[in-house]
């Protein structure tokens, strides 16, 4: 669990699933909604893929995984539409886009295809929590600074009439990139002290061969970079 949330946080350390991280974190409640939806999909898809791991032929495994994931995403989409229409409205296009979230495909390939169902479900839960935690972090920072509220409740210090005015920048697109960059820098800084080896998750991304990030110093550990390069080579 700790591994999923802190050491191998999928967003801040493995740099997976950046699109939803940037897009839906304008307010904290959206961030949580997205996190929970993705976690649900991740647990279910990890379990099913792990159950099917001996049946799926190696050659067509990626399309098979995508189909499984897409099925669960549709289910979650319908559930959200039925029980949380407001959330559906604010997440919009990013809800169906969970299908192409590389965290989910990455975990299917990296973990679920090699481990037992129970372990895979647990891994899904851990990774999902890590994803949610990172999203929540971004959401809280951006909502507090950008709108002066937190979960829709006004913060007296940060809103109109308090110490400072809300800074619109953080609610807009550039603010998303900025906060994400800063958070990642903070995560790098903290982990550098502890010198924990981190596996680079990029190896599972189909883009690994051409992607400059996969062989690049995301974490600054040369060992992890070698691992990523090898993984990338194997995958493509």
């Amino acid at each position: 669990m700790k591994r999923g949330v802190i050491v191998e946080n999928p967003v801040l350390r493995l740099v997976l699933g950046t699109c939803p991280t940037l897009a839906v974190t304008t307010v904290a409640s959206n961030a949580i909604g997205m996190g929970i939806a993705a976690t649900l999909v991740l647990i279910c898809s990890n379990t099913v893929i792990s159950l099917l791991r001996s049946i799926i032929p190696d050659k067509v495994r990626i399309p098979a995984y995508i189909t499984v994931i897409a099925g669960f995403v549709s289910i979650v989409q319908m559930l959200v539409k039925a029980f949380a229409p407001a959330l559906d409205e604010s997440l919009g296009i990013y809800l169906p886009l969970i299908v192409v979230n590389c965290i989910i495909l990455g975990r299917a390939e990296m973990y679920a295809s090699k481990h037992a169902p129970a372990l895979s479900a647990l891994d899904g839960l851990a990774m999902g929590s890590g994803f949610t935690a990172a999203l929540l972090c971004m959401g809280i920072i951006r909502e507090a600074l950008g709108e002066g509220t937190l979960f829709g409740v006004k913060l007296p210090l940060l809103s109109e009439g308090g110490m400072m005015q809300p800074i619109l920048f953080f609610s807009l697109a550039p603010g998303g990139f900025f906060v994400f960059g800063m958070l990642m820098a903070a995560a790098n800084r903290l982990s550098r002290k502890k010198e924990l080896p981190v596996r680079n998750g990029c190896g599972d991304c189909p883009a690994a061969a051409t992607c400059s990030l996969s062989g690049h110093a995301v974490t600054g550990h040369s060992a992890s970079n070698h691992g990523a390069a090898e993984q990338g080579g194997r995958n493509v």
Partner: peptide, 21 residues
Amino acid sequence: ETLQGLPITLIAASLVAMSFL
């Protein structure tokens, strides 16, 4: 050192995005 790699890239992306605003 802390900003090397991805963080500085994201901050640069933020500036590019700002220009498109």
